[in-house]
Design a protein around this nucleic acid. Sequence first.
RNA 1: GCGGAAGUGGCGGAAUUGGCAGACGCGCCAGCCUUAGGAGCUGGUGGCCGAAAGGCCGUAGGGGUUCGAGUCCCUUCUUCCGCACCA
Length: 836
Amino acid sequence: MNLADYDSQRIEAKWQKIWEEQGAFRADDGDAARPKYYLLEMLPYPSGTLHMGHMRNYTIGDAVARYKWMCGYNVLHPMGWDAFGLPAENAAIKNGTHPRDWTNANIVEFRRVLRRFGFSYDWRREISTCDPEYYRWNQWFFLRMLEKGIAFRKKSKVNWCPECATVLANEQVIDGFCWRHETTQVEQKELDQWFLRITQYSDELLEDMSQLADGWPERVLVMQRNWIGKSRGARVRFDVAGMKDRSLEVFTTRVDTIYGASAIVVAAGHPHVAALLEGVPGRAAMEAQLKAMRQKSMRAADIATAEKEGFFTGRFAVNPFSGAQVPIWVANFVLAEYGTGAVMCVPAHDQRDFEFADKYGLPVKIVVQPAQGAPLRADRMNEAYTEHGRLVESGPYTGLTSDAAIEKMAADAKSKSFGEAETTYRLKDWGISRQRYWGTPMPVIYCEKDGIVPVPDDQLPVRLPEKVALTGQGQSPLASVPEFVNTKCPKCGGAARRETDTMDTFVDSSWYFYRYTDPQNDKAPYDKAKVGYWFPIDQYVGGITHAILHLLYSRFFCKVMRDLGLVKHDEPIARLFTQGMVQKGGVAMSKSRGNVVGAIEMADKYGCDTGRMYTLFAAPPEKDLEWSEQGIEGSARFLNRVYRLVEKHAERLRGIPIDWNARTDFAQATAKEKTLVRKAHQTLKRVTNDFEVRWHFNTSIALLMELVNELHAQEPLDQEVSPVVLKRVLTIMVLMLSPMTPHIAEEMWEILGNSGTISRAKWPAYREDLTREEQVEVIIQINGRLRGKILVDDGLGEDETKERALGDARIAPLVSGKEIVKTVVVPKKLVNIVLR
RNA sequence: GCGGAAGUGGCGGAAUUGGCAGACGCGCCAGCCUUAGGAGCUGGUGGCCGAAAGGCCGUAGGGGUUCGAGUCCCUUCUUCCGCACCA
């Protein structure tokens, strides 16, 4: 860059120091005089280096926070560290450092980078989840949940990642692979585990989404809805012919089609399969097929496209409604984990069953006919009819609608005790045990005599021991630390052992935003009055990657906390914004891909204001952004251009006072002044709108560029422009720039001779009367095609506008001799003359 | 397969309510300034025809509604994201 460039490094350091000294961004707990605004960005996991992908999140948040400050809000804008987790431990195993030292070093670096960008955080509220004063409250919440039965222990099959050497939550398993290790297949292990009973809130998590419909992206809600996976249906028991002690339960959402069942199909992993095959002819061959089915890939994508395969077991089941006997099959398309692991096969009314029946020659029996149109014929169907309709050939239910039949049949099944209505969910309880060191210890003690004993509140926090051997192998590292494990039972005082598992780190991030309201509290997780003042979070900004895990867990925590009387609201986050990724070369920036643009390097080269500006300008914030070195030079060029403009006129304007209340007298204004004032207020109107409703900072910046271009076009600005007018226009411009590029804005504010800092200044109000043009351009169309333009006075009436259009020298000859069918006049916009 | 989002110049993108398509920026071209330019300033820049005036075409493809469609409706295609034999 050039010598004449503004000195971004000096200016940025200067203003960051001043903001720090004056405590410019300190949130004021409980200020009743101003409306509050809680703006939150997702807290980072401090690892590696911060690149521009991270910075985009904070830049968007900071622009909004600063704008809200200027609009008079009491803004809470905090930052902290999601500091527990596997990478710290893996680094420790690899390099022999302590996870705490590794983490703390990263935090120091992250803090340095975020400060280098001048984000408006209230740093007094900084939290770190690995701080014992933080995680003690994880333990405290856990104990409260234990008392309520929300936290519980059970032996269960768990997802085990051999690479992480720990358990994964269902949410952390993607298509059978670990979310951290895309090529590591997750194994199943049977272990004693701690769970949080999130399923108790399934319905509420689903229903309360209606409270979020206005403020959350639709796709996040859709993802959560799918994840919860509520399905209303019925459970029906089929007796197995010739086996008195065996029956098969099926789950179905379409019990109304049960008279059309041609078979019962069970999953290969169904617990009764072995018993069913007992003593049937051809058993050996079946066992072989069964084994093959069980060994098939776990990948969901493969399963979905796999050919349907199955075999007849030789046994029959009895349809409890019709008494008909149907064959029992085993097939690969039935999932052991979902519903009851067995389904009724109704080829006429389920596409999967149709395909299966087609392959194996099972009969297709129509029992639901469409309400309208021609009736179906089994011999002419090439796909299943899956819509609702009216029942046929269904015994006493014939003639009912599907809806009525579903209800009645479930009720009848219940009264005859072979089934009942049931709702199933895909959502499973949240397993939070991790066999790792770098996490929150579970505050539980096992005593021979008293069993599971909670650690008393006054003994919290249960601290992680300093010295531990980290090998990455096998059991929980804490199990190998005798001084941690061996303790006394709080009840009987006898020898006892501590729980050695630690908590999933998603526990830490499920409530951290409450702690920001009262980060130093050592009596409680927070003061209820403070949370009452600040909550809910007005705006949360983060990546779409957390659409399910973090955001669902946070919602769940909130509901538990509400039921514990700790908060009053149902939902913690009123509005959510998911920003797009920053890419380079078409893929997301990441260390592993080696395509990162380091934040510090960027700031050293161009200044952080330039980085901020480019980040906001290159794309609307919800879309992915491709990083371009040429693009950022364009932003640098613009900031230089603005700065030079202000600098050039600053001396003359420095002593001119600004009186915002003084009316601009347009009657006496010069043409130049009118143009500039109008442009300034038009820009202000639209930029204000961008901040208020659209968050399209890219268009705000484009508008500011237009304003600067106009100022250049009107040079020389020391002729026919009064200093008062010019100073106002420049000041408005600088104010509009300030949420996005705060440092250079402060500097320009200062050299223009304004008092105080911009961070304390008020966002200017645009004046509608000053945005209006005296004359407007009206386009003239003939048959919808552009044929001319005229300049008319703003207030000109419809008829006069029409007259002017028809009289226009270009238009008149085109119209003459033709019949005018119709003329459409849109005031200030256009005249469309329709000719025959 | 189901659900969601999207498709506009060489590129990023704009068009807020159905009313001049391509704002603003990048890149490119020309000129000015300069000892120099990877600085700054000025102008040009969707395609085709034309010396020009101007005309025609143009927002993934096709159809429709309308005086008027990037925008609304139907349909096809493509890309991305989520879910996925969920019974």
